[in-house]
């Protein structure tokens, strides 16, 4: 029964995708349809046009299995011979270092602001 609910809810979420695709073409919004769909679903929940229970289980499944949907793009990397070069190795190295810097500094900045704010309130 749970699988059935999840599937129906994913279909309901698709309606927001189609609405978003339509809206994007109509107004030529420079954002991907999925982002527009996210805003639409949020608004529908916020304005109580749909109930949280109608999409919650389907959304939870989609979010939990998100990595599955990225796998084809990762397989697609084999099509880029440029990566199999010294330059490719260097760029992977750069991405690694840069990602590390972004991750740790973002955490530090967020932590720092939160602590400062906390101190301010006291």
């Amino acid at each position: 029964m749970k699988i059935w609910t999840v599937m129906m809810q994913i279909l309901l979420i698709h309606i927001f995708l189609f609405l978003a695709i339509g809206l994007k073409q109509l107004l030529s919004i420079p954002l991907p349809a999925s982002m527009i769909g996210l805003v639409l679903l949020f608004l529908a929940l916020f304005l109580r046009i749909i109930k949280l229970e109608w999409v919650e289980q389907g959304a939870n499944w989609l979010m939990a299995e998100l990595l599955l949907f990225f796998i084809p793009s990762a397989v697609g990397i084999v099509n880029y011979n440029e990566i199999a070069s010294w330059q490719g190795v260097e760029i992977v190295f750069i991405i690694g270092i840069s990602t590390f810097i972004v991750m740790s500094l973002t955490a530090f900045i967020a932590d720092w602001i939160e602590k400062k704010k906390g101190a301010h309130v006291e």
């Binding site: 995708l17 349809a33 999925s34 949280l52 599955l68 796998i71 793009s73």
Partner: peptide, 22 residues
């Protein structure tokens, strides 16, 4: 053959409206 899986990235992104709303 992977078009279905890649397509699901769209609904999966939209799904993140749920935790934001909550």
């Amino acid at each position: 053959g992977a078009t279905f899986l890649t397509h699901m990235l769209g609904p999966a992104t939209i799904a993140f409206a749920v935790p934001i709303y909550k």
